[in-house]
Design a protein around this nucleic acid. Sequence first.
DNA 1: CTGCAATTGAGACTCTGTCTCAACTAGTGC
DNA 2: GCACTAGTTGAGACAGAGTCTCAATTGCAG
Lengths: 168, 168
Amino acid sequence: MPTAEREISRFQVFLQQQGLKLTSERSALLREIFETHYHFEADELLFRMKEKNVKISRATIYRTLELLVKSGLVRRVHLGEDHYHYEHVRRDSHHDHLICTTCGAVIEFHDPVLEARQLEICAKKRFTATFHNLQILGVCDACRRKGEQPDAPDRVKMIQVGALNLRK
Amino acid sequence: MPTAEREISRFQVFLQQQGLKLTSERSALLREIFETHYHFEADELLFRMKEKNVKISRATIYRTLELLVKSGLVRRVHLGEDHYHYEHVRRDSHHDHLICTTCGAVIEFHDPVLEARQLEICAKKRFTATFHNLQILGVCDACRRKGEQPDAPDRVKMIQVGALNLRK
DNA sequence: CTGCAATTGAGACTCTGTCTCAACTAGTGC
DNA sequence: GCACTAGTTGAGACAGAGTCTCAATTGCAG
């Protein structure tokens, strides 16, 4: 469903509020982001734009991503361990991530009970939360079935290999 | 309480299991880490070692930190937004972080209810969790009291400034 | 005490992300 | 519609975190 138009107009409103302009580069990027699913990285975006013969510089990508994060249309998430990852925000559907350290799979989930408890904790500490970020690292069902090595040294090696996989 | 000796021997056991060696550099680093409280960064460690006239290269610091993370003596955490932060693990006292985006303060907390719920979620998804990482971003009590600007444009600016502060 | 595998340091390298500045536009006001 | 100007762009230099290489060194098993 290539309906990035709604998001583009939301972005335009945001830009106008800040006295900024909607350029062709910005809308091209937004279109690319909202036509793709799930998570992406800044350099991946640069590559995809090049592939489509849309000329756009790295600086502009980073600058636009910053604006998109501020506008709330895109969210920065920590997935693997490395650098930033981004995900577009369709509605206000917040979710967290289970990350398989063996195959790198990312499973999204949303749990109202968890969210509510977090707010309770913040209230107790007189902390005004604006955002949170939860990753649970471990082994997904598929990977667990494949390799069932129980002893300690092997497990360490497995984590090592998993980390490498994560870095793509 | 400068009792890094217990951790050093735990590390040695780990190293031996892996067929690795305990060098003077490694124990010096471990001592430094366990004599300090709370969070630190790799380059900060490099600087502190230089200050103490303990010669140790950047490569060795990174290599040792990797081993320490694998051994479970040190944990990698995402604090601000940038790069890695580390914290030593005294016992198995896991905790999460509230991070003030205005002043950069880090408040640790631990909540068994939250942990239990996370395990329930993993069980439901047939995911075997080994570790998790939760940061709640927001404004701490002190910062909230200081600046009480309610209107929208200012809030955006505040978040912007907060992000800058975080980067030290 | 010896041999050798593991480790170290120095510095080159990579990668992500930021900054600069001259050239270029969006879009407001006329 | 046109001109003006503040905001934007691209190219590439730059910065900082982290990794890699390789020759020299060292821990430690035998």
